[in-house]
């Protein structure tokens, strides 16, 4: 009674089926590379990246190869996606000059959408964005674009406008300026990448645990007899999460694109 156990780690090391990974490095596991060419390992992530790129290119190519006045059904879908990104996201947030950035926003939207949907396709249950390199790189591109645009359009007054905001009472300017500086240059790219990454890792982990443990209970009918039906609620819940992951995949792609557009807008029009 002198020991208060809070949230004991229920991990039976004798029958170690599914336990929390001992250290975080196992979460970013470096699986055996399928093959290596020199110092570059070709893991399944690399293949899936190329596959996502090929899928996006083929989809856009097939939809817009022969533009007709009345488009085909697949053309309607792709046209609606392109016009959604260009009109609602790019022009809606950045303003009339948003169409300069619309190709970039469309590319990252489609790439992240296809990459997220890889978690739900039957033989490739592996979301492309659950390895930190990919959201990290995409967030780095957005970061370079919005910092580059800010400096090229406004010169050094971009930096001064952040550190010494004129619209704040004089006594607080240094504090707000410091907060704004850290938020603009450090937190924005980090949270952009981590948001996408953590959402997808959480979904992938939940699907793996729920569906895997449900299946494992059923598969060990020989060991534990009729108690294997315990796996049924886990499996059913896993299927419900599977459906929920559709929404999460599309939503996270949309939020990444929308936030990129908003960051570019604050660089193009810093007076807001």
């Amino acid at each position: 009674m002198d020991v208060l156990i809070l949230a004991a780690e229920a991990c039976d090391t004798a029958k170690e089926i599914i336990c929390k990974p001992g250290n975080v490095v196992e979460l970013f596991e470096h699986k055996e590379a399928l093959f290596s060419i020199g110092p570059f390992d070709f893991t399944r992530t690399v293949f899936l990246t190329f596959l996502a790129m090929v899928i996006v290119l083929i989809a856009l190519f097939v939809a817009f190869r022969k533009p007709r006045v009345v488009p085909t059904k697949f053309g309607v879908i792709m046209e609606s996606i392109v016009s959604f990104v260009r009109d609602d996201v790019a022009k809606g947030t950045i303003g009339p000059e948003g169409s300069r950035y619309a190709p970039y926003l469309l590319s990252i939207f489609l790439f992240i959408l296809v990459g997220n949907l890889f978690e739900l396709t039957p033989f490739i249950n592996f979301p492309l964005t659950s390895r930190m390199a990919i959201p990290g790189m995409l967030s780095l591109f957005t970061y370079l674009i919005f910092v580059g645009v800010g400096f090229s359009k406004n010169g050094m007054s971009y930096l001064w406008g952040i550190i010494w905001p004129k619209s704040v009472p004089i006594g607080l300017r240094w504090l707000v300026g410091l907060i704004e500086f850290v938020s603009y240059f450090f937190l924005r790219p980090l949270t952009l990448a981590v948001r996408l990454f953590a959402n997808l890792v959480a979904g992938h982990l939940m699907l793996t645990l729920l569906l895997g443990s449900g299946w494992l209970f059923f598969a060990s009918v020989g060991d534990i007899g009729p108690r294997a039906v315990i796996g049924l609620p886990w499996f059913a819940f896993g299927l419900a999460i599977f459906v929920f992951e559709f929404v999460v995949a599309v939503l996270q792609a949309y939020i990444f694109t929308l936030l990129s557009a908003v960051y570019i807008q604050t660089s193009v029009h810093p007076e807001h």
Binding site: D2, V3, L4, L6, A7, A8, E9
Partner: peptide, 12 residues
Amino acid sequence: MIELKGAIALIG
């Protein structure tokens, strides 16, 4: 007298 054991990361 009161010890806390277990996964405190979960509570965090």
